[in-house]
């Protein structure tokens, strides 16, 4: 099965930050938002929303086909798992916290875990049961975050372009 990507339509992002809360909650011990807040947990979001050039831009790991973070990892913690996933969630114990991955990621999608003994954490897709929608996509109220194959995304972009072009 083709790997599905979280692909972004920045024009639709209102900057509500719901994706960040949902991502953090999905990575909490409670596993749900109110439960994690009530328990005083501090799980870290692995998606970011920045404002640049007058636009809001949600950004997370691009799960590169040729990931610089994997090349940079000296501890064989960051790796390419099956189906296109780039992750270290299943090899956290190997991470030595050297931040080579952080420096090599062109998108700034990797961060420290915020724990006393910090490790590198990033979008690891451990937020959706089975084949479900990633938590950030599920939480997005406007459709700025989409989940599908690259070809599905480019097809919808073409359709949108053609609609606009024909209207002119």
């Amino acid at each position: 099965m083709e790997f599905k990507e979280i692909l972004i339509r920045p024009d639709k992002c209102t900057g509500c930050l719901s994706c960040r809360l949902a991502c953090a909650a999905a990575h909490s011990r409670a596993g749900n938002f109110l439960g994690a807040v009530a328990a005083g947990e501090k799980p870290r979001a692995r998606i970011f929303v920045h404002r640049a050039g007058g636009k809001n831009l949600p950004l997370n790991c691009r799960h590169c086909t040729d990931p610089p973070c994997v090349d940079a990892c000296v501890a064989a913690s960051m790796h390419t798992a099956g189906g296109g996933l780039v992750t270290n969630h299943d090899r956290q114990e190997r991470c030595i916290g050297c931040w080579m991955c952080v420096m090599s990621c062109p998108f700034g999608a990797i961060r420290d875990s915020g724990e006393e003994d910090p490790r590198a954490v990033k979008c690891d897709r451990q937020c959706a049961p089975g084949d479900g929608l990633p938590a950030c996509v599920r939480a997005c109220p406007t459709g700025a975050l989409t989940y599908g194959t690259v070809d599905q995304f480019s097809a919808s972009s073409r359709e949108e372009f053609l609609r606009k072009w024909l209207q002119c």
Binding site: C16, L17, S18, L21, A22, A25, L34, V37, A139, P141
Partner: peptide
């Protein structure tokens, strides 16, 4: 849905 977590809390 989805409800805004900031409002919810």
């Amino acid at each position: 849905d989805p409800r805004c977590g900031f409002g919810e809390t």
